[in-house]
Amino acid sequence: MSDALRHVEHVMGTVFSFDVRTPPTPRIRAALTNAVAWLHHVDAVFSPYRPDSQISHLRDRTLTLDKCDPDVQDILKFCAELSAETGGRFTASPGGRLDPSGAVKGWAIERASDLLFAAGAVDHCVNGGGDVQTRGEPEPGEPWRIGVADPRDRTRIAAVIEGRDIAVATSGTAERGPHILDPATGRPATALLSLTLAGRRLTRTDALATAAFAMGDEARTWLAARPDLHAYTVTAAGDVHATPAFTTHNGVPWLHL
């Protein structure tokens, strides 16, 4: 196996794992340091739990949008677009409080991945609290292989998604309990245990996973009209659904993108 560069960072209340398979150069090591610093920057600007973040100040009306970091303006614009696309099931203000977190983590991970790629790390994987962006290959000729944790037993892998430049995001209640509000009802979404979405870029994939999770039982109908989205869903009743591109391999739902 060639040289690999691994890094684990505790930030944004969760854990980020960097797995760089391109042999490390000084430029790649510097990009990894920058990517880690970037995540801490995003947390400082966007965390709704930090009273000094720009999001907290915006919420408390002690700051106006035009004085914010341009990234804040971009994210809120993206949230508005997602809200329109999902019939309001995605929102930057769940429960009426400004909290664009549903869009921020995936975007931060994708941007961290871009920093590595631009520095020549063409083969890598960034996993932020279970949301994943991969580029290139883990080893020559091999796709990245991502196990989807079973929400009923997190030591089990319920499905496998593999591919080269892929993004995989999972929304669920497994650890934090019901915490994703359905804007249509104002109550936590409880119909699904977890919903995993696979795409190419994590910003969009992660935000859509959050929106689809909030849709609950309606998510299947919504997904059926979007053949470019691939989803693996476990309902609260224990039923498992996978979109048509999934095959079964050794009894395990398997998607090759």
Binding site: H10, G13, T14, V15, S17, D19, K105, C125, N127, G129, G130, D131, V132, T134, P138, E142, W144, R145, I146, G147, V148, A149, P151, R154, R156, I157, V160, I161, V168, A169, T170, S171, G172, T173, A174, E175, R176, S194, T196, H249, N250, G251, V252
Partner: peptide
């Protein structure tokens, strides 16, 4: 063993805490 494969590179799951 459950996944019937020898190589899993990473895990996707609902956001976990530290």
């Amino acid at each position: 063993v459950a996944a019937g494969t020898a190589r899993i590179d990473t895990i996707s799951g609902a956001t976990y805490t530290s």
